[in-house]
Amino acid sequence: MRPLTEEETRILFAKLANYTGNSLKNLIAPLDNTPDSDRFVFRLHQSRCYYVRLSLANLATSISRDKLLSLGTCLGKFTKTLKFRLHITALPILAQHARYKVWVKSNGEMPFLYGGHVLKAHVGRWSDDCPEHQGVVVYNLHDTPLGFGVTARSTAEARRLDPTSIAVFRQADCGEFLRDEDTLFS
C-alpha cells in the first residue's frame, strides 16, 4: 500500500472530474479545523485505489501486503497502461458530488440494473445544459443512485431522439455488486 504519485493523482482526479463538479475539492478537505485533524487520503494497493481516512491507512500499515484485502472505499483500478477505471463502489462518492444527473423512470430501472443502457423512453428527468459525452450519475425517481454513465447526446439533441434510442451509455450499475461479486473486491 502506498500513496499515489503525481501522475496517478492527476489521472484519478481527471476521471473523477468527469462526473463531479467543483465540489470535488471537498473530498480531500480536512474533517475539522484543528491543525493535526484527520483527513481522507488516496492509497494504492494491488493497483486498486482506495479512498480512506489517514488514521485508518496508518493502522493498515501493520498488516502485511499480501494479507491486506481492502480498506476504505475502493474507487477503481489503475490499468497497466496507467488509465483509471472507476468501479461501482465509487458510486456513493460520485453521487455526493455529481454535476449532471439523469433520473430514470421506474420502468427503466431494472433494464439499467441488468446492464443495459438508458433509453430515451426511460428517462424521467435530465439536468439542463448537459453536453454530449459527459459523465452523469443515474438516479431513480426516489433519488437513489443506481449507477453512472456517459451521455450519448446533449440535452437539446436528446429531446428530438426517438424513444428507443440510447440516451446514456452505461459505465457501471448497482447490479455489478451481484454480477461481478467474484472479481470486484479481490
Partner: peptide, 22 residues
Amino acid sequence: GKVFVDDRESMMTILAMVNADK
C-alpha cells in the same frame, strides 16, 4: 524511485489544475 503526493497542498494544486482543464 517514485515521488509520492500525499500532502494536501500539492493535491489541491493538482485538483485545481484538473478542474480548470475540465
